[in-house]
Amino acid sequence: METNLCVAGFGGQGIMALGKILAEAACDSTDKKVTFFPSYGAEQRGGTANCYVVISDEEIGAPLGDVMDDIIVMNGASLAKFLPRVRPGGRLFVNSSIVKDEIGRGDITVVRAPVTELALELGNAKVLNVIMLGVYVGYTRIIAPDIVWNAIEQTLGSKVSLLPLNREAFRRGLALGEAAREDR
């Protein structure tokens, strides 16, 4: 079993942190193989940012797939760029606060989450990536939520004052993801 994920959005939306936390949780919790591959270069300076996570029972070939099983999309430009690369039967997790477009593909599962609005409700726009991570983990159950939470805690490190906000953000995301899973 191998899962290929691409996370894409604007620079500043915490795209790299989302992918890296998930990959670190996979490294910590299992004996699975895992890779995290960030895009690097000009697109990080003001345009779209994206990264790839592969979690597998086998040795991993390329740390990014020709086609993706899952994509997480935080803005419209990323949807246009990565939607054609989702395999039939794959899953799209989309920030529905920003991306209002018709998805236009009937052969994939679409999970919509208004993560920008939810983050603003929580009082900090920056936690939209943690909410989306919760949605993804809640829906896919790719890694146990408490292990992902440990990885978030580790990432925040000494910034303990941010823990309650992030805990609530992750919890909300998880609830959304789990609800979407039950509605399938």
Binding site: K20, A23, K33, V34, T35, F37, P63
Partner: peptide
């Protein structure tokens, strides 16, 4: 790739 990717 080897330089910038993360792995266990």
């Amino acid at each position: 790739v080897v330089g910038t990717m993360m792995e266990p």
